[in-house]
Design a binder for these strands. Sequence first.
RNA 1: GCCCGGAUGGCGGAAUGGUAGACGCGGCGGCCUCAAAAGCCGCUGUCUGAAAGGGCGUGCGGGUUCGAGUCCCGCUCCGGGCACCA
Length: 817
Amino acid sequence: MAERYDVQEVEARWQRRWEQEGTYQVDLDDPRPPSYVLCMYPYPSGPAHQGHVRNYTFGDVLVRYRTMKGEAVLSPFGFDSFGLPAENAAIKGGMPPRAYTEARIAELKRSVRRLGAVYDWRREIRSHDPDYILWNQVIFLELLKAGLAYRAEAPVNWCPGCHTVLANEQVLADGTCERSGDVVERRNLEQWFLRITRYADELVDALDGLDWPERVKTMQRNWIGRSLGAQFSLPVKNRPELSIDVFTTRPDTAFGMTYAVLAPEHPLVETLTTPEQRAEVEELAARASEESDIERLSSEGSLDKRGAFTGSYVVNPFNGEPIPVYVADYVLIGYGTGAIMAVPAEDQRDYDFAALYGLPVVRTVEPPEGFEGGAYSGDGPHINSRWLNGLDNAAAKAKAIEWLTAQGIGQATVNYRLRDWLISRQRYWGCPIPVVYCPTDGIQGVARDDLPVLLPEDVEFRPTGQSPLRFHEGFLNATCPKCGGPAKRETDTMDTFVDSSWYFLRFANPHHEDGPIDVAAARQYLPVDRYIGGITHAILHLLYARFYTRALGDIGLSPPEIREPFEQLFCQGMIRMDGKAMSKSRGNVVSPDTYFDTVGADALRLFHLFAGPPVEDIDWSEQSDEIIEGCLRFLGRVWRLASGDIGGEATSSDGSPGAGELRREVHRTIARVTADIERYGFNTAVAALMELTNTVYRHVHAGTDGTIVSEAIDTLLELLAPFAPHLAAEAYEHRHGIHVHTRPWPEADPSELAVERTTLVVQVNGKLRDRIEVDAGLGEDEVIALALASDKVQQLLGDVAPRRVVARPPSLVNIVA
RNA sequence: GCCCGGAUGGCGGAAUGGUAGACGCGGCGGCCUCAAAAGCCGCUGUCUGAAAGGGCGUGCGGGUUCGAGUCCCGCUCCGGGCACCA
């Protein structure tokens, strides 16, 4: 059997077998306990890159491990196949989007198969398939019925590069498009929104219970940005019919309010600006509207010329004092009420503004002794605040809100940074929004029988960037489902994040015909036990999916008790090269296919598993190829062991001294590898397997009992099966004619884990001075006696009696002299 | 500015408060071979020493402890997130 290992032949053969034998197919009547391991479904951009390989290798280890553990592991795969690149390719004169996308899917699928990652391909989902479009549209119409989808005019983000509007989540902090890098413009447009804000509280509260990386949870918390405060009105002086509503998180500081500020876009600006101030205010408003978000949001630069007095005054209801009303661009129309009470003493922005415009500063919270600087936003006793004096921040806040409520001028209010999710995209290659506009009946959802609304294929892509749907007569002209008269079809398509917000629910039964989600199947497999993907989706996809899961449950399309889609989330580190992310545009990709053709999938998998902790980023360097060679060398060592190529002269029999030691090492490795897999410690799991391999080699050379060696090799192959599945399967089949991936996961025998002999470390004053091989069962007195008797200790101590001896039997004694 | 994460040999990295550097890469040496490759075996933190041994050593400075890479306080540097959100 000591034959050469033909990587290409063996890997291809096992990949076929796993699929043909349905090793990783699960069904609804599967008697094994269900579990669900999922990697984020990819946008198909061609053959897999190293990031995919890393992702799918991690997922595959878990799928194979849990299968050997006896679970029915749902392991589906799909493609997030709508999206801009396909359409851009068409505009550049390439293939039509469908053909282009399907060609990319075929390429990606091929490399995923060559990686040896196993999926139940019967469940494949592609978001551009008519079936998926149908259910996407059904869901949309149900959301519309439930009031969770609506159309409204709002200031939106327009990306000139992508020729479409974007969700807030798709605009980076510097005001550029996350996809194209263009500076995003603000436009007032009528668009479709999903009411994610209705779930804001639940989305933020439920984060606490999730087994997710803390930083992802923090990012979501920040994004939702819940703040608790109060809203109340400031009556305009001498104009009893007018008042300004303001939102504040610090109603306790209201006695220090020395002016009020309106956002330049605030509707009352026009009314409140006096003729003398008009020119100045209008100039400011004009400049603010022209400025990009980058400039507008920048905290850099002076506040000079960024504010203007309206000429009007409002009355501070707390003390009856009149205060001036300003307009300033640092107040945003989209947050709170678009107007604020300004308290310079306790808010740094207000302080800076006040300093510039010569406005008074009245402290209402006593700063601590020696406090220097402008605004003090910390806690402290209230001053200059009449009936709030002496109270701390929290008590004063509660009392202020109570007073506002009693006066009937305000109440406690919660504000969120989170906005509703804008899903309209002015692009072709996406799921059509299934509504028509009727001159008599207005917005009408397309009738169920007319779904799905599919994309016409006889379209012309224009370099203007305008969606071809807008010029396609056959698509545009529809009939109103209510009156039967002519109507115009919606030409916008959905954000592709809509597609990815529920695919994991569909996977439970992707062929279900009575609705988007098979409720019973979803109950069986969801939530996803292990969700694996990149940190890049920390907000976008992962927040939308949490929202959708809840919304679908609440409108009766999915099990309402499933609130969270992903019980545990694991975010793998990125692969970098020269400090930058590997990407096609940077031209620094190292194609996995090259490795499949040479060293094989197992060696590349091992590299990704072994190179470092899965959460950390890894650098692809010159050393990477050498490490891959090392992984290949390790696989060769295992293969030669398993095929009986080395040693072989099993000299001693059962009683050989090495046998017990080897067996203990095997069980120790079982325990280590199992624990490491559970905590995503794949790098140390592989290291443990390498150690065991080295140990077995030593025992073979030492002539340890062949039966024990053989057992050790079998266990080694079983433990290796999730990591290097092809080689493990091939070797195991050669030895036993059994498919290793159908074997139960080995269990560590606790009695084998108990060691008999151990090394007693002897320290003097905390420094290592001697090591003594001892019986592991020794007690405190015995190890101390041994330690004190040590020659080295005797020499060091001389005549001095130890002042203290600390013993941790059986492994350590520290003598304090 | 605020909030996280990190810093360990030539390199990637291991280490429930208890032998720092597992495992691997690279390097050095040996065996095998006509030779090479492959393979197998061994050495490899640093200084000192012929050796035995000893000194030093986990970004920097303090502290807690019998004992600190690990815990606490104060810094430096790197990476990431948030940042006019009232």
